[in-house]
Write a protein that binds this DNA or RNA. Structure first.
Length: 625
DNA sequence: ATAGGGGTATGC
DNA sequence: GCATACCCCTAT
């Protein structure tokens, strides 16, 4: 793992938690950009796709975009459902899933311009810089198998990443929850069929002048394109129903009576409802987020942590440690450990957690100081803890502290909702903080400081420096967001966020924001490790873990001039086929001239486009017609 | 928010 | 130089 990055697992926990919350898509996009997500975290990717899917539903936006999402979900299901993860991780399948295209979607390299604070990425940091920070290079560097093996050792890889013994490690319950089941695949097929039909026949019902032309275009794109391609590749998403509809629709292209019949039959299909049902099913299967599970477990089981820790005391086996080569080879009673080294708590032994045991293990070895891509998330409570660990067995007070810290952070997360992004980071930090409490109090570290060997990068001041600026408030993606994933499971904490979110953004346009939309006001600043020791004035009076204000990178007047000059004009970006098709579909659905509506409806497709761009492009597309 | 004119970059 | 695509400005 690179030194200056937050632990990808922590990032994924945060995202996994927030994805179930009614947070605006734009904010979530920002999170996706700043948090390092493992390329192999397929379940999280699936959650992201499900959220994208859900953001389409409330506005009845059954478009080809929905088909694309469903196809991606299916691909992820295939990977998640595979028993031989080794095969997946190194194969073409994997590459297909984690291609640069996906990186664009998940990490939004375009948004990188914004995050890095300039309008011309090439000029200031270059596309290389973007890739380093967010793109595939970054992923490769921090999570790629080669690096992973070097840094973490194969054993750790085996534990952390989806591995051959996936089912064994994760437990059957977890597998059942996360991995795609046959039932769900069947449901997915039905949804796909319904959406494909709706996409096609919908334009016949709702279209205006050039109904037949548009219908034929959709037939070409969906049925002769997508469906035929899938059929050729024997993709399981293709059902018999789908093929029957394909035949009927093809016939409808040439035969008016068949066309009328198809339109009539299609009325029996409610694609939006089908998507809703599918989402409901998936939500029910996935259950609560890991963080909620942890807090619930801590609340319900007094002896959970203690048991785990005791277990650790007893079981000092190497499998609990990271075998990363940087780990000093001394036993747990060695008092010479540096502060910041993390203790390993084998949560699997006693922790009553039935799912994600692999991450539960990782949770317990969180570092005292964690970097966050140029920003640092550091230990908050340094008081009273010396450089070395006490080495004593944990007592009830320590357990209480762990629990209270986590619970307090959880409540604060929901109480302060003006800025969800820092909240997410706060949550991540709180997890780290809780871990720190355990680390300091629960004995010597058997594990290593994961990211900061020797503790060199630690901020001794105890402040948490996260270079993320507060973002503005944008309209909620949808009022129906109160029905987010896992709503049943997060009743106690969700309402606050939902209300506050709606309150903050009330009165604004209730247009759906694409999940991958970049936030125009969000930006981060480059961290300069060499200077910062000016934390005193930034320290928060509150006891909770806090995030300090970002510090802006110094920019020379020459560069400022360059930026201003370059800011005058965006970088030219060619329209993709998908964008063009989506624009056509949007015009067909909403009508020409409703550019803002179309943009909002397909925000994730029209990344970086404005309504004017859409208008101009339509002008170009129709210029010679 | 949208429409239309015009500037600029790019490819031929 | 021309055509085209993309982008920006401005009037409505």
């Amino acid at each position: 793992m690179a030194e200056d990055q937050i632990d990808p697992d922590i990032a994924s926990w945060v995202l996994e938690f927030l994805i179930r919350q009614p947070i605006k898509d734009s904010i979530f996009n920002s999170l996706l950009r700043v948090l390092p997500i493992s390329e192999t975290n397929y379940s999280l990717k699936k959650l992201i796709l499900l959220r994208r899917l859900e953001s389409q539903v409330p506005n009845c936006l059954v478009s080809e975009n929905v088909l694309q999402i469903l196809e991606q979900i299916y691909e992820l299901d295939q990977i998640l459902g595979s028993k031989d993860c080794d095969k997946i991780l190194g194969t073409k399948d994997c590459e297909q899933i984690v291609t640069s295209k996906d990186c664009d979607q998940f990490f939004s390299t375009n948004g990188c311009d914004h995050i890095l604070g300039s309008k011309d990425c090439d000029q200031n940091l270059g596309s290389k810089g973007c890739e380093k920070n967010l793109g595939s290079k970054y992923c490769d560097r921090s999570l790629g198998s080669k690096d992973c093996e070097q840094k973490l050792g194969s054993k750790y890889c085996y534990q952390s990443l989806a591995s051959k013994g996936c089912e064994e490690k994760l437990g059957s319950k977890y597998s059942d929850n996360i991995l795609g089941s046959k039932d769900c695949c069947e449901l997915l097929r039905k949804v796909y069929c319904a959406v494909a039909v709706e996409c096609t026949v919908g334009c016949l019902r709702n279209g205006d002048n050039d109904v037949k032309g548009e219908f034929f275009d959709v037939v070409k794109r969906v049925w002769r394109g997508r469906v035929r391609e899938m059929e050729g590749e024997d993709v399981g998403l293709v059902s018999e129903d789908l093929l029957e509809w394909r035949d009927d629709i093809e016939a409808a292209v040439w035969d008016e009576s068949v066309c009328l019949n198809v339109v009539e039959r299609s009325k029996e299909i409610d694609a939006v409802e089908a998507v809703r049902m599918y989402l409901k099913e998936e939500k029910a299967r996935m259950g609560p987020s890991f963080l909620e599970l942890v807090t619930d477990t801590l609340k319900s089981n007094e002896g959970g942590v203690q048991g785990a820790i005791c277990s650790r005391e007893r079981d000092e086996s190497d499998q609990c440690r990271r075998n990363d080569g940087e780990e000093p080879e001394h036993d747990n009673n060695d008092r010479t450990y540096e502060k910041g080294k993390a203790v390993v708590v084998d949560t699997e032994k006693r922790y009553p957690m039935t799912r994600r045991k692999h991450v539960a293990r990782k949770r317990s070895r969180l570092v005292t100081s964690c970097s966050f891509r140029g920003a640092k998330i550091t230990d908050v409570d340094e008081s009273g803890a010396g450089p070395s660990c006490s080495g004593h067995l944990p007592g009830t007070p320590e357990i209480k502290r762990v629990k209270e810290a986590l619970e307090t952070s959880r409540l604060e997360l929901h109480a302060v909702v003006k800025d969800p992004l820092p909240e997410a980071l706060l949550l991540a930090e709180s997890v780290i903080s809780v871990s720190n409490v355990a680390n300091k109090d629960l004995g010597p570290p058997g594990d290593q400081n994961l990211d900061l060997p020797g503790g060199q990068n630690r901020d001794k001041s105890g402040e948490a420096n996260v270079a993320v600026e507060k973002m503005d408030c944008e309209p909620p993606g949808d009022q129906n967001r109160s029905k987010y994933f896992g709503a049943d499971n997060v009743v106690s904490v969700q309402s606050g966020v939902a209300n506050a979110g709606n309150g903050l953004c009330s009165g604004q346009i209730n247009a759906p924001k694409g999940l991958m939309e970049r936030n125009k006001t969000a930006h981060t600043f480059e961290w300069d490790d060499s200077i910062d020791h000016s934390s005193e004035e930034l320290s928060d009076s509150s006891n909770r873990p806090h995030l300090s204000s970002p510090r802006q990178r110094r920019v020379s007047p020459l560069n400022i001039y360059k930026e201003q000059k370059l800011a005058k004009r965006r970088k030219k970006k060619r329209w993709s086929i998908v964008e063009e098709d989506t624009l056509r579909a949007g015009v067909q659905k909403f009508g020409r001239g409703h550019w803002k509506l179309i943009l909002n409806a397909y925000r994730d497709i029209f990344e970086e486009r404005t309504e004017v761009d859409l208008k101009d492009k339509w002008r170009n597309l129709t210029r010679f017609e």
